[in-house]
Design a protein around this nucleic acid. Structure first.
Length: 220
DNA sequence: ATCCCGAGGG
DNA sequence: CCCTCTGGAT
């Protein structure tokens, strides 16, 4: 896929999605980081509910560290893997104070050294909170990148690099969010709904699936 | 039953 | 690369 085509693909997703302000529930690095850590293998709704009371009680690393593992657990008991996450978040808050003066670090090495923070979480924080050229690739984006030709690659790293290189800089900050939603709800693993895809005109997927009720793809 | 906007450990 | 951790939604 050409660079121009890739740009058009992502632009189509941008045009179809709400304003960035509405998709970012967490504006500061700390709450964003914790929310992403809690999101692992959990549904959005359950995480949103848990973070609402958690951040009301502890909006910053100092309060979170003071709250401790047991205190944090009270707020997140309804999301999966909550035991490990409570432990990680408590330690994470403590480490932010000990190592980084209570601030979320803006480099990959320091982020990934924090408990519960892997490559994907680090990339989200680097991109959204610090505006760096990083793209978070999960199973959805990996599949979408390869299937559509937007960012082919056998490894997560390759897909990450492809996206960073091909995404228009102005769209980089929110592109992974659009991509993951698109991959999750439209470009699905089993039954992609290509007939309602906003980017189908810029997609190289060879087996585009048409709505049984339609004879042709809609005009782009 | 299967999957989830993963990470850590073997 | 494999496995495990875990509750909720569909």
């Amino acid at each position: 896929m050409s660079r121009k085509q890739a740009a058009a693909f992502i632009q189509a997703l941008a045009d179809a999605n709400p304003a960035p302000e509405t998709e970012l529930r967490f504006s500061d690095p700390f709450t964003l980081l914790v929310a992403v850590v809690l999101s692992a293998q959990a549904t959005d709704a359950s995480v949103n509910k848990a973070t609402e009371t958690l951040f009301a009680a502890a909006p910053d690393p100092a309060a979170m560290a003071a709250m401790g593992e047991a205190g944090i657990a009270v707020h997140i008991r309804r999301i999966g893997l909550w035991q490990g996450k409570a432990k990680n978040v408590a330690a994470l808050a403590r480490l932010l104070i000990e190592r980084h003066d209570g601030q979320v670090p803006n480099d990959r090495t320091a982020l990934e050294a924090l408990p519960g923070v892997g490559r994907k979480t680090a990339n989200v924080v680097l991109n959204v909170a610090f505006g760096q050229e990083a793209m978070a690739v999960d199973t959805h984006i990996f599949r979408l990148g390869n299937r559509t030709g937007l960012a082919p690659g056998k490894t997560v790293r390759a897909v990450e690099d492809g996206l960073v290189r091909r995404c228009p800089p102005a769209l980089l900050r929110h592109a992974h969010h659009w991509l993951i939603l698109h991959g999750r709800y439209m470009c699905k693993a089993r039954a992609p709904e290509c007939w309602r895809c906003v980017a189908i005109a810029h997609c190289n997927y060879k087996d585009k699936i048409l709505d049984p009720g339609r004879r042709s793809l809609p005009a782009p």
